[in-house]
């Protein structure tokens, strides 16, 4: 790359930086930070916090830069897979990871709607934060309930749990499919 092209890139970069808007950049930052924390949380039990942090610095870059592509999905599924492969963990940590992944998911969905030079009214960001916060509160309550179930019914009947879980997944899938495809 010759000097003139480098200079052109430099000027393009400066122009891009000048055009960025704080609201849109805050949403992008949220995509990166939640992605970073989610990778650390998912991978730290398996490979140690330091190595996990190394991966976590790199992996959320693509979801942050290209949230409209498959990258946020890939990061979330990777985290779930790593979590599933490294044995059972505490419910609190599982909820923390779920909350981080959900925030990563919603902030990526929000980032898709706007470019980095979009002027964002505060209501958009506060509305998104409020909705996410309420969902996480409800999820915390539901997680506590799900965590209490084995204590209430004991941990002996694994087949019954499996069947109940399967029924719940099928039922849940049905409900979500109905919500999406119902005729209005």
């Amino acid at each position: 790359m010759n000097d003139s092209r480098l200079a052109q890139r430099y000027h393009q970069g400066r122009a891009w930086l000048r055009r960025t808007q704080p609201g849109a950049m805050a949403v992008r930052t949220s995509v990166y930070v939640t992605g970073f924390l989610a990778v650390v949380t998912a991978a730290a039990p398996a490979i140690g916090a330091a190595r996990a942090a190394g991966f976590a610095l790199v992996l959320p870059i693509l979801p942050t830069v290209r949230p409209m592509k498959v990258w946020p999905t890939a990061l979330i599924v990777t985290c779930v897979a790593v979590w599933a492969l490294t044995g059972e963990h505490s419910y609190a940590l599982a909820f923390l990871l779920g909350a981080l992944l959900y925030t990563h998911h919603t902030s990526a969905a929000q980032a898709v709607t706007m470019r980095t030079d979009t002027y964002v009214t505060p209501e958009v960001v506060t509305g998104w934060a409020r909705r996410t916060g309420l969902v996480l509160l409800a999820a915390a309550a539901a997680s506590a309930l799900v965590g209490l179930l084995p204590r209430l019914f004991g941990r002996t009947d694994a087949i019954a749990y499996g069947l109940a879980g399967l029924a719940a997944v099928v039922g849940l899938g049905g409900v979500l499919a109905w919500l999406v495809f119902r005729k209005l």
Binding site: E88, Y91, L93, A94, G98, Y102, A139, V146, L149, V175
Partner: peptide, 20 residues
């Protein structure tokens, strides 16, 4: 047979259901 994975999915389940 992992309850923690269901807990991990709960924010997505609730968030999607509420949004829809």
């Amino acid at each position: 047979g992992r309850v923690d994975l269901v807990i991990l999915a709960l924010p997505f389940i609730i968030g999607t259901a509420v949004a829809l």
